[in-house]
Design a protein around this nucleic acid. Sequence first.
DNA 1: CCTATAGCCTGACGGC
DNA 2: TGCCGTCAGGCTATAG
Length: 264
Amino acid sequence: MPELPDVQGFMKYVDATSLHQTVNRVTITDERILKAVTPDKLRAHLEGAQFTRNDRHGKYLFTSISKGGALVVHFGMTGSLAYGDASEDLPDYSRVTIEFENHKRLSYISRRMLGEIGLSEDPARFIERHGLGPDALAPELNREEFVKALTGRRGRIKSALMNQSIVAGIGNVYSDEILFQARVRPDKEVNRLDEETIANIFDVMRRVLSIAAERGGDLERLPSDWLLPHVEAGDESCPGCGGKIIKTKIGGRPSHYCPDCQTE
DNA sequence: CCTATAGCCTGACGGC
DNA sequence: TGCCGTCAGGCTATAG
């Protein structure tokens, strides 16, 4: 599930549950989720340490470790976190579980194993090496820069919004919502959009992501005049005009839009 | 340099 | 009930 708003939700979740507790034990149920670190190294870095703070960049969560460096958490399409009592059974598809001295545990869950757990000594360098653009909600990202980053590009606007090297954090679902609210069709070629329209997409992007992030990505808590709650509920009618929402594929990803409201 | 596409990986779901 | 194809809120490597 995780796009920027969801990861923001996970960040608050870790803030509320897992900071400043000493790690007793790290259990790795499936090593394949560790792509750039060995199980021994992960354990060595975490055991006896505490988590001190969380930061997010795009869809990545960086949890700082008191001994130095940070735990890198990426959720892929099916990742999530679950905090609970250490005596309880692990949730299905737990891949890594961190047990604390207070007999609680934090489990990283991933059904399809498309995510990753790793370590980074320097998250800023990690972000750079992975070619991530500025976070979509970063205060230093402004309208002008956004317009500049999109100008001269070919391809479709939805693909550009989902391109993490332009702006980090937007995925398949929120790109649909942003374009719905900006009234731009997802298959519109970027180079056929004028500056004003792109600037408006920027404003809408900020509003959509901030509101959704506040709600931790919980689709049920989103305003009912947004597209997502309708699509999620299997409702094929447009919250704006009541017309039929079109489902199609753009860049291989399922996409929803209203042909009547999204005219640009 | 840029964009589009296939592949990774696994389980849930619907149709037969 | 069981099998099978399709699908999925992401990313990377590769081809064009």
